[in-house]
Design a protein around this nucleic acid. Sequence first.
DNA 1: TAGATTGTTAATCGATTAACAATC
DNA 2: TAGATTGTTAATCGATTAACAATC
Lengths: 218, 218
Amino acid sequence: MGTKQNVSRAVIQRLPRYYRHLSALRAQGETRISSRMLAEMLGLTASQIRQDFNCFGGFGQQGYGYSIDKLCEGLEEIMGLRCAHTAVLVGVGNLGRALLKNFNFESNGFQLLCAFDSDRTVVGSAVGDVTVRDVSELYPYVDQHKPDIAVLTVPHACAPALAQGLVRHGVRGLWNFTGEDPAIEALCVPVENVHFSDSLMTLCYQVNQFEEQIHSQP
Amino acid sequence: MGTKQNVSRAVIQRLPRYYRHLSALRAQGETRISSRMLAEMLGLTASQIRQDFNCFGGFGQQGYGYSIDKLCEGLEEIMGLRCAHTAVLVGVGNLGRALLKNFNFESNGFQLLCAFDSDRTVVGSAVGDVTVRDVSELYPYVDQHKPDIAVLTVPHACAPALAQGLVRHGVRGLWNFTGEDPAIEALCVPVENVHFSDSLMTLCYQVNQFEEQIHSQP
DNA sequence: TAGATTGTTAATCGATTAACAATC
DNA sequence: TAGATTGTTAATCGATTAACAATC
């Protein structure tokens, strides 16, 4: 239960995946699972799963396994998914729009307050559950409403200045889709980068390896 | 130069980041860099960078450092960015549209052939550099043109069946934006997942930790 | 009780860092 | 040549796996 400090990054990066699979099981009406079975599902070892869960205190019960409900609750607690942090989104292009319309911020720990753009044809309209405001109102809005994080879905070139401005106005986290990072990494608030490029390059490498394997054993 | 086998996943995941920063330096007209300087830029150790580069054979020169050009070329070679693999995109919603319009597939090792959707109001139109076709033509098209990978930007629920169908028709890699994975992981072709959820949850955790730190030392 | 499965300690494995000879 | 910086080996560190007593 007690959130231990010093949980390694390796562990933290596995937690969302645990949560995703456990939520799916819960939705199917399952109520309990053993580390062995979960390990099989995820392609990990049972040992590792028990170690991971024990970073945060024991959810399990000997001879029985883990209650899926308790585990989900525990993970929500640990990752802070129930804090209802607040967020603003900057940049209502196609990507911003995709997030506004299809992404469930609530179930990921955030309440989306509103969105900003500079394009007058979208300013004033409603997209998803929020209204789009003119970007000139951004900093006054941030000063007043103090959102915890900002979602950056602006073009690459605007990113460094915008990020810096937001942090100066008190934002304490950035969800960065701009592909930019040298400038943003230096800001000393938490940043999560969604780098499409990195992901596709990694896939490119894997596809090459995969094809080499196939060719070498025909 | 010779692509060694058994390069660890940890290394591979750093390569795109190296490439991104080195490309930026090249664009600024820089021609050489030492492992020490690069390490400082990236927040890594010089030792680690030299180890990483030496997985693939020596690009460097004692007493001088690394040629940025050679390094970029080497990384392109290693990751297979010059293979011009082919890709199709399935699902022209806002997210698909964002990729079609703003993402440079070419510079990430892929040539995008065309896109597919089921919505008749977009079928036949051009988005970015490609034409949108009816999804009923997807499998015949894949049979004929044999794209290396498919980009999945369809709604969550369509993902498992689609992924399975594509693999059955010979696709050898998936770039998966659907948030789905239990079903897709099992397909035994390379998959790169872009899980927005995982990323935002990780940010949520980090923001909480960050705020605890601030509160504990005021 | 007997069987199952956790929590936790110890052993292994792999990745990162340090050190330094080779060499530009 | 002297200074710098690589390539590479050895030492350290951390993460994963194995093992097993505790206990439901």
